[in-house]
Write a protein that binds this DNA or RNA. Sequence first.
DNA 1: GTGAAAGCGCTAACAA
DNA 2: TTGTTAGCGCTTTCAC
Lengths: 337, 337
Amino acid sequence: MVSVTIKDVAKKAGVSISTVSRVINKSKPVSLEARQKVLKAIEELGYKPNEVARSLVTRKSRLIGVIVTDIGHSYIAEMVRGIEEIGRMYRYDIILSSSYGHKETEKKFVQLLMGKQVQGIVLISEDNNDEVVEEIMDMDIPFVYLNKYYSSAKIPSVYISSERSSYNMTKYLTELGHRNIMYVTYNKDEKYSVEKLKVDGFNKALAEVNGNAYIFQGEGFQIEDGYKIGERVYKMAKENSITAIFCCHDEVAIGLMSYFYDNNVKVPEDISVCGFGDSKIASIYRPRLTTVREPYYDIGAVAIRRIIKAVDEKEIEKENIYLPSQIIKRESCGKIR
Amino acid sequence: MVSVTIKDVAKKAGVSISTVSRVINKSKPVSLEARQKVLKAIEELGYKPNEVARSLVTRKSRLIGVIVTDIGHSYIAEMVRGIEEIGRMYRYDIILSSSYGHKETEKKFVQLLMGKQVQGIVLISEDNNDEVVEEIMDMDIPFVYLNKYYSSAKIPSVYISSERSSYNMTKYLTELGHRNIMYVTYNKDEKYSVEKLKVDGFNKALAEVNGNAYIFQGEGFQIEDGYKIGERVYKMAKENSITAIFCCHDEVAIGLMSYFYDNNVKVPEDISVCGFGDSKIASIYRPRLTTVREPYYDIGAVAIRRIIKAVDEKEIEKENIYLPSQIIKRESCGKIR
DNA sequence: GTGAAAGCGCTAACAA
DNA sequence: TTGTTAGCGCTTTCAC
């Protein structure tokens, strides 16, 4: 608690504090003799430079602020892993703040983080919140916005191509023989919603085989939302000989499968189900969920990489980055004989 | 980027920087007139105090370091939620570092965090690592150690009573009519392992009804580990008319249930399964898992509360804290007729 | 009630 | 190669 400072080291080593600073930072040549004395003193005193003081003078906190909706959401945790691990490679630490979706809280966090002199901000959100984004962009600090539900070309971000991913998944279903397929969406008509793109990809793939596309308006993106619509979905499926259901997100698919489990509908024997995301639960749940893998870890990693680049080059690149997605084939989708 | 400082505010308001400081901190009375001029200047310039500079002089970073094994583990994310949310109430931010179980990395993080002048450290670990703990305790900084697999009275921590929880769950199983019950453990003979306590509680409850206790040595705490032992567990269960299996952790139970699903063993009709933890997956998986709820959020909340108290009172309480657990009754355990 | 000045621990000119 | 010194932006005596 009685911390040892650079002065103590200097005194003990019999040199000036500048010399100590030089050996710590390797910023200028120091004679072998002096260096050794300093190193010895550092060792003996257990000296650790005070990063706060350093930050003050260098104006570099080596801190990145990360504002998330909820670290308890596994895909967000995965993104944060990517951010943290890559950040650490460049000697950046992250300050984590959870907003639980409150815009006002997010705004407050931005202010707090700026006060802490963070050198960049990653905002991981689940709503369509231009307002906070604009506020951050006004601050003129390296910034990346991560949102798997909404996208806008004007905001620096990292994502996968939703349309292509959805197209690929649908195509896979048609290859399994499905022709009457339902897509469960939510919010597809909202501004910036990526659902619009996903529906487009879905329709396109189905049109190629003259299949029948059914769009079902869901009630949200969570497991409960998937469960809640189970009855109606099943009814619609039966009435239209639908054999496969493509859900906009894994959670919805899991909710739906749970409804099916509870009501003795067999997946994939009676009906095939697939999701989007490949969140953790997708490979744990039984039957395992066929889905589109969104590379969350990589998304986080690329985001932080972009911020660090902006810090170094003092200029944030405008071009958004698209990462490849992948179809993960598991048991929840079966062949049509 | 061209940040406005207290000097700018002072100049604009036509007062000294001390006065500005006083109105910001409400640390000393300031005349109404002066205060208003300062407030106006702050408003117009959009001034935000530089927390780094503040930290340097006050020697309070308002930062708490949190070292976790992996933020991707949902129960850890839940603990971190508790830590963060309560920390925030006291205006503390958290710096998150993931060690992925490497002791050397953890040690490095401790050093980094000390450099950043954190005012306390929470270490969330899954191994038995005295070494790192001792290192932190030597630093003489408020510290709490969270570990659901190991416990030691000498280390400041927060947990539930493992023996009582295990006793309660076993008792519930006996109330359902089970008499031949298997407890799947791992590492129970290792130093500080809480498994020893859990086995004790299990045996005690079963002894009270003259039931037969079977202990199975598992292969780990993860889902895969539960899956791997499925075949042997099932064999042993059949040979001994075992009707219920109590797993040391939810993950093991889920792995086991997945094995059962894949091999057409019905839970709970053919056999009952329960777990320990109530991690997220327990309520999502079908059948839903009966389990002991460990209050992860609260554990994190109490941990940070304890640290903040230590910061304020300059003295960390020695007594460890036990939180109540709860039996969550779901579908994976059935009655014996 | 107010301002001048010292200083938190450090880096980075500048001189020597 | 080294030491002296001036800050970084802020809080906090201390004197008025």
